[in-house]
Simulated scan of single mutants.
Amino acid sequence: MPTTPPPPGWGPRPPEGPPPSGPSGPQVPGWAAPPPRPPKRTNTWLVVALVLGGLAVLAVVGIIVAIVVVERTVDNPPGDGPAADVEITACEVDGDTRWPRADLTVTNRSSKTSDYVISIEFVTASGTRVAEANASVDNLAPDQASQDRAQSLTQVEGPVSCNITDVARFAS
Rank of each mutant, 00 (worst) to 15 (best):
P2T: 15
T3I: 12
P5Q: 10
P7G: 01
P8C: 09
G9R: 04
W10L: 08
W10G: 09
W10R: 07
P12Y: 06
R13L: 10
R13A: 14
R13H: 09
R13C: 05
P14A: 12
P14R: 10
P15Y: 11
P15M: 07
E16R: 11
E16T: 15
G17D: 06
G17C: 00
P18G: 06
S21A: 08
G25A: 06
Q27M: 09
Q27L: 12
P29T: 01
A32G: 00
A32H: 12
A33L: 11
P35K: 08
R37T: 10
R37C: 06
P38F: 05
P39E: 11
K40G: 03
R41A: 15
T42M: 06
W45E: 14
L46K: 03
V47P: 01
V47N: 07
L50D: 02
L50T: 08
V51K: 06
L52C: 10
A56G: 08
V57F: 06
V57T: 03
L58C: 10
V65C: 09
I67R: 12
I67H: 04
V69N: 12
V69I: 13
V69H: 14
V70R: 15
E71H: 12
T73I: 05
V74G: 02
V74Q: 11
V74W: 11
P78C: 12
D80R: 15
G81H: 11
A83N: 13
A83S: 14
V86D: 04
E87N: 13
T89H: 04
T89S: 09
A90M: 03
A90K: 10
V93L: 03
D94V: 00
D94P: 04
G95N: 12
D96W: 06
D96G: 03
D96Q: 10
P100S: 05
P100Y: 00
T105I: 09
T105K: 08
T107P: 07
S110Q: 04
S111R: 10
K112R: 14
S114M: 04
D115Y: 04
Y116W: 07
V117K: 06
I118Q: 05
I118V: 07
S119L: 09
E121T: 09
F122A: 01
V123P: 00
T124D: 07
T124I: 02
A125E: 15
A125P: 05
G127W: 05
T128K: 07
E132H: 07
A133P: 03
N134Q: 10
A135E: 00
S136T: 13
V137M: 07
D138G: 08
D138L: 15
D138A: 15
A141R: 11
A141W: 12
A141C: 02
Q144C: 05
A145I: 01
S146W: 10
Q147N: 14
D148S: 14
S152V: 04
L153F: 08
V156S: 01
V156A: 03
E157I: 06
V160T: 03
I164F: 04
D166S: 10
V167H: 09
A168D: 13
R169G: 09
F170R: 14
F170Q: 15
